[in-house]
Design a protein around this nucleic acid. Sequence first.
DNA 1: GACCTGCTGCGGTCTG
Length: 769
Amino acid sequence: MTNSPRSVSDRTSSVGAFGLLSEPARRWVERQGWTSLRDVQERAIPAILAGGDVVVSARTAAGKTEAAFLPLLTKVEGDAAGFRIVCVSPLKALINDQANRLEGLAEACGHPLHRWHGDVSASAKRRARENPSGVVLITPESLEAILLRQGVHARPLFAGLQAVVVDELHAFIGTERGIHLQSLLTRVEAIAGRDRIDRIGLSATLGDMALAADCLRPGDGPSVRLVEGRDAGNVVKVQIRGYVRPTRVPEDAIASSRHAPGASPREDGSDPAFEAVVSDLGRILRGRTNLLFAGSRRNVEAYADALTTACGSAGVPNEFFAHHGNLSRAHREEVETRLRDDPRPSTAVATTTLELGIDIGDVAAVAQIGPGSSVSSLRQRLGRSGRRPGTSAELRIFVIEDEDGPAAHPIDRLKLGLIQSMATVDCMLGGWCEPPPAAGLHLSTLVHQTLALIVQTGGISAKAAWAILCGRGPFRSVDRVRYAALLRCMHEARSPLVEQAPGGQLMLGPGGERLASGHDFYAVFVTPEEYRVVHGGQTLGTLPLDRITLPGQTMIFVGRRWRVLEVDADARVILVEPTSAAMPPRFDGSAGPLHDHVVAEMRRILSGGDVPTYLDQTARSMLEGARHAYRELGLEAASVVEVGTGVVLVPWVGTRKLDTLAAALVAMQHKPAARRHFVEVDGCDTVRIRRTLARIAGGDHPSDAALASAVPSPAIAKYDGWLSPDLMRAVVISERLETASLRETASRVLASGTDHEPGDTPHRAGTET
DNA sequence: GACCTGCTGCGGTCTG
């Protein structure tokens, strides 16, 4: 948006939407010096002025915020007390960004703007509560806090509400927090005594926008109007670079030649493949502003440290800075500010923390270690680069694969990290991205919302609670019978969460009182307890509590090396001092689900013959080797490979179907382990597994409930622990498994192996070369 | 075989 002598009103082509705005809003636009409204604004303004629910989608920095607030502030009216517009945002940092952006516009239109989140002073919130008006920017958790703590007194705050805006709608889709938000919006409508209050969703462009509409108005997605920004994306330059990690040398060889080049990869950084990646990263990224997505916090620390060290060795100033969720807010803001405002080149080495809409400006290039978690994440990341007209987005993916060796697992020869990277890129270039998971039962969050509704109302009948949460709200797949079962197990907990008063009203039991009065009740997600890492009185960040840390131990953190001085278990503080040698700390976590479509693309790549130009020389020869191994392992024909004392099943399906197959095999007395792309079954041969798979394919397999019982450690969500085994199984069936696909998955493994009837000589994967 | 997000109100003490 550059200054220009010509204002919007001079241009007849823009008079359409511009002319619909109120005079103060038009004057504000002119004062910005905009020469025209953006495409998405042109089309969103009439849609929002017409009323009803609207999803506005466009790429980052396309002007979505103004596209929503120009028309909303134009039509908001009435002098009665109460908030006119509530805008819910997933991050405190985004609320602060938005407030700076919207303050002038809101003021010009005569409406006050309130920020409302945990870092906003209690006095500012009290002022807003006592004199509610205009626009409030708020987090879901703070909205929950208002409903909980104000109870019936919250009604005047929302009675005159004219619209709800959901910022970064895509960040809520398919998540537990998204269900919470949907329930909150229903409760706000109920407390305002209104059937519907207009909802405006601001979203990144997704593969299927109908799913965003369903998220904005659960149960009535088709009534939501979609406005998609048409700003053309810039040219994308992609490269996938391969790196071979040499085979681990035998133990005695390590003992005799510990420092020999090409020896076994070690965690202290003497892994030659890691060093080659670091050296190329330094060469490619230095001198510009970039993002490097390293995948895990541990990798972020390892790469940031190695790149910083390399800068030191080269005698140049450091340009590489770690950024992840365990680092202090102050440090992260410093990195964000440097990326955005500092002319000096810098690269943030980050996890997913820099994927969301935090304003860091345009970066020159995006680099990534490994395939990443999904196509939609890759798209978000790439959207950070090449936004200026005339520039192109640059993406480089660095993939390390082990060298084929005598001790290697046969499946490793397929180079699935490289193949998944290629599949993810191909899906993205083809315009596809993952849809959110099908709606589950979300009973953990229903436990939370039931408690919250009781606190908010001071007591409510089961019938009325069901009507709001399940009838109108997001828990539509929970019928009255199942809700009664849920209330029963909430009541039968060792310390009851709910009790029934003589009049039939639901009240909190002692267990419910304890949960609802706790500080962490406002959020529906769990956070593990953590130690604060402190140096010289400054908090550097936090580390998970379960990590055993002892004085004298060294670690890499914030991209620098430290020695632990003291661990204070009571205060949960780790005191550290700088040191010279260290290893990155471990964090825990598990991988997210892989979609069927990406896995199908992987198979297409392995069975195909064309070599994409985006591969570098090493990646090309890796692909050639992987295709050779694919044929040699017989995977063109069969999806069963004998390995060691067991078999590997490769049905080429995504995580949920793979987990379902593994659960069925457990229930049928096998010993499977579901890996990222395949299932390993120990102590079993081809004949026996084919017999089992044939039974499954024929429909002779355990019931859904038996499959759910075979899933290890099913409790994941915050209040899962309060569900009965029956309800927990129902949750697992609806959210973790795809039982309807089981017969087909088994058939896929069998059907591709029609050349190998039971009794045929099975294909034997040689571990010899 | 990963990541990220959030948080009230009250009563006490201190300061200008």
